[in-house]
Amino acid sequence: MTDWAIDTQKLTKHYGDVVAVQDLDLQVTQGEIFGFLGPNGAGKTTTIRTLLDQIRPTSGAATILGRDVHRDALEIRRLIGYVPGDLALYPRLTGKETLQYFARLRGGVEQSYIDELAERLKADLSRKVGDYSTGNRQKIGLIQAFMHSPALLVLDEPTAGLDPLIQQEFHAMLEEVRDEGRTVFLSSHSLSQVERVADRVGIIREGRLVVVEGVDDLKRKAIRRIDFEFADPIPSGTFTGVAGVHEASVERRHATVSFEGPVNDILRAAMAHEVLNLNSRESDLEEVFLTYYRDAVSPGGNQEGKVSDVH
C-alpha cells in the first residue's frame, strides 16, 4: 500500500479552451494536514471534484489511499469525509435528521460521537436546516465529514461562516485527526487558517501548482521587514547596496528595510549609527502567497495572476 493519501500524475482538466487544472503533480502524505492555497478561480475546487470523481479529467491520473479515483470511486467514498465549498442540505430536515440520514448512508455511526461533535462545535441540531445561518449549516457539514472517523478528510473552504471560537475548536479537531495518523486535505483562500494548522502547503495559480513546501520553509523565504529608530537622522542611502535588501525607506530618524536571507549585513549598516530601537516583523504565509501572485502586467494589459471564473 502506498504512503500517499493523495497522488496525482499530470492531472489536467480543461473546459473547452479554458484551462482549469494543468499537469498537476501532487503528493499528500498520510498523517499530515496539507493546505491547498489559491484565490477563488485558481483551480482548487476543480482539483477536488476531479479527485472525487465528480468530474472526469481531460488527462492524467490520480489515486486516493492507493486506489484509482475513478475505478475505485465507491470504495474511496467509504474512506473519506468531505465538505464541499458549495454545501447544500435538505432545508426541511432538522440538523439531527440530516445527520441521521447521512449516518444511515454510512451504514451506521455512533450517535454518541455525533452528539460529542455537535457539542464541540456548538451546533443546535433541533432546528430545521432551512432556518440555519451559513455558519450553522457549515457545522452540520463538518459533523457529517468527521463522524465516521475517515482516513482522509477533504475540506473545501470549511470555515465559511464560523465564528473565531468555533474555528479554534475546529483546528483542535484537525490536529487530533493528524495525531491519530489520519490525513487532512484543506483547501482554502484563507491564509491565516491554513498557516495555523498545516504541515505543508501547495499554492495553485491559474490551474498550475507553483510550489509545495513546509509552512516554516516557505515563511523563511518570504520577504521580512525591520523597523529602525535612530538617535539622529541618517543618510537616505544607508542601506543602498546592502546584501539581501529589497527596499529601504528612510525618513530622518526612522527606517524600514524589506529583505530576505541573513540579516547580518543590514545590522552592520545600521550599527554605523546609534540605534535606539528596532523591531523585526515576522513574515507570514500571506507574504509568501502574495510573492507568488505579485507578477508583472502581461502584454495584454491584464495581471498574469488574474482570477478566472473557473474554480
Rank of each mutant, 00 (worst) to 15 (best):
K10Q: 14
L285W: 04
G60K: 06
H273N: 06
N264Q: 14
R127Y: 07
G130T: 10
H14E: 12
V288H: 00
D72N: 11
R67F: 00
F146R: 03
T8R: 02
S249M: 13
Q303V: 04
Q100V: 05
G305D: 01
D131C: 02
L37M: 06
A222M: 05
H189I: 10
L267W: 06
G108V: 09
G43P: 06
V83T: 13
G41S: 12
G161Y: 00
H311K: 13
G107L: 08
D53M: 09
S283W: 04
Y101L: 13
T45H: 08
D25P: 04
E175T: 13
Q144P: 03
G130S: 08
N40G: 06
V288T: 03
V197R: 01
F185L: 15
G135M: 08
G241W: 13
L142M: 06
L267Q: 03
N264Y: 09
D124V: 10
Q138G: 03
I6L: 11
D131K: 11
D23M: 04
F36S: 02
D199I: 05
D72T: 02
Y292F: 12
D53N: 15
L186T: 06
I6E: 00
A5E: 04
L152G: 02
T238M: 12
L79Q: 13
T45C: 15
E206V: 03
E176W: 05
V129R: 04
T46M: 08
D68Q: 03
V83C: 03
L153W: 07
A151Y: 05
R294E: 07
L285V: 04
S192T: 14
G35V: 00
S236Q: 15
E180H: 13
T2P: 12
P164Q: 08
D68G: 02
V307W: 00
S190D: 10
W4V: 08
R294N: 14
T8E: 06
V212G: 00
T94C: 10
A270N: 11
L162V: 07
R205M: 05
V18A: 14
A151S: 12
T8C: 09
E195R: 05
V212Y: 02
V194Y: 04
D216A: 15
E251R: 15
G41H: 09
V257P: 06
G261R: 08
K122T: 09
Q54N: 13
F259S: 01
Q193I: 09
V197E: 05
F36W: 05
K13Y: 05
A118R: 02
Q100G: 04
D156S: 05
I64V: 15
I226W: 08
K96W: 14
E213I: 12
G135K: 07
S187N: 15
F146Q: 02
S149E: 15
L285H: 08
L186V: 12
D199Y: 06
G35N: 00
I203G: 03
E169Q: 09
R49F: 10
K44R: 07
Q144T: 02
L125R: 02
G301Y: 00
T98N: 08
D232C: 01
W4F: 14
N136A: 01
A145H: 03
V28L: 07
R281D: 03
A231D: 15
Q27P: 03
Q100K: 14
L152R: 00
L74H: 14
V307I: 11
E251G: 11
E274A: 14
N277Q: 12
Q27E: 07
R106Q: 12
L65F: 10
I203F: 10
A61V: 05
I266R: 01
E180M: 15
Y292V: 01
D115N: 07
